[in-house]
Simulated assay, not measured.
Amino acid sequence: MQLDRIDRKILQELQKDGSLSNLDLAERIGLSPSPCARRVKALKDAGVIGRTVTLLDPKALGLSLTALIHISMDRHTPDRFEHFEAEVANYPEVQECYLITGQAADFVLKVVVKDMDTYQQFLLGKLTRLEGVTGVQSSFVMRRYKDSTELPVPEEYPIA
């Protein structure tokens, strides 16, 4: 799908506020509601727009500790990685999980919890008990400088 100027504006506005009504979105981008709705549907059908979510403020929920955890595995096999990923997907504390390269670790997790005691319970009660985990290195976020879910919308590149 090739994005034009209007598609890019739609994507930029929806990334800022995914709860916009079609009427409000159409007004912001200077389009009438019917063509706006058709474009949004086409972007969804093409897979450019995924799911719509509501972002919560961790601090407002009492979740004041964010940890970035590097995980090392004992074996680098598809089965071992798939098992780890399937287990971690069930942990609500884990916001993000990446299989990485270029480091001593195999995975990086972003974990959000209430406090250090809760982190310790998560680490010792869940994470280090997973089959294949041989090393854990944790870093703790002191301050969020930028926390964005918005992606740059390319002008010159078609979306596959």
Results as ranks from 00 to 15, higher is better:
R5L: 03
K9C: 00
K146M: 11
E85R: 09
V136C: 06
G102W: 12
L20Q: 08
D147T: 04
K126E: 12
R51C: 06
S72P: 02
Q137G: 04
N90I: 00
S138I: 10
A46E: 14
M1R: 04
P158W: 14
R39H: 03
I100V: 15
L151G: 00
I69R: 04
L124R: 12
I100C: 10
A104I: 13
R39L: 14
E13Q: 12
E156N: 13
V88K: 02
T54R: 15
P92L: 08
S19K: 13
P154M: 09
V136A: 07
V53L: 15
E156C: 02
Y119G: 05
D45H: 02
F84L: 05
R80M: 11
R75Q: 13
L11W: 02
K114V: 12
L123T: 09
M73I: 15
L123W: 11
T54K: 14
E150W: 03
H70Q: 15
S34P: 03
S139I: 08
S138D: 09
D79Q: 13
V112S: 06
L25I: 09
G132W: 05
Y91Q: 04
F122T: 08
E85P: 02
E150A: 14
S72I: 07
I69E: 13
L61C: 04
A37Q: 08
T77A: 03
N22T: 08
T118L: 01
K110Q: 12
L151K: 11
E96P: 00
Y119K: 07
M1I: 11
D57I: 15
E150N: 09
A46F: 14
G62V: 01
R28P: 08
L25H: 13
V113S: 02
G132V: 04
E155T: 08
G30K: 02
T101I: 11
P154C: 09
K110E: 10
L31R: 15
K126A: 04
P78D: 12
R5V: 01
E156T: 10
F107I: 04
V133Y: 06
T118N: 03
L151W: 09
R80W: 02
P152T: 10
L99Q: 08
D57Q: 12
A37Y: 00
D106T: 03
I159R: 15
D117R: 09
R75I: 06
V136H: 02
D74T: 11
V48D: 09
K59G: 02
T118Y: 08
Y91N: 00
K41L: 08
L11T: 01
A26T: 06
A42H: 10
V111A: 05
V113D: 05
D117L: 14
P154Y: 10
Q137V: 12
N22C: 05
F84V: 03
T66A: 12
K146G: 00
L3A: 01
V153D: 01
Q15N: 01
R8F: 03
I159N: 10
I159M: 15
F84S: 00
P58Q: 11
S34G: 04
M1Y: 10
T77H: 03
V88M: 09
L11V: 05
S72D: 15
I49Q: 09
Q15P: 01
S72Y: 08
I69T: 13
D117G: 12
C36N: 11
V111K: 06
G47K: 09
L43V: 04
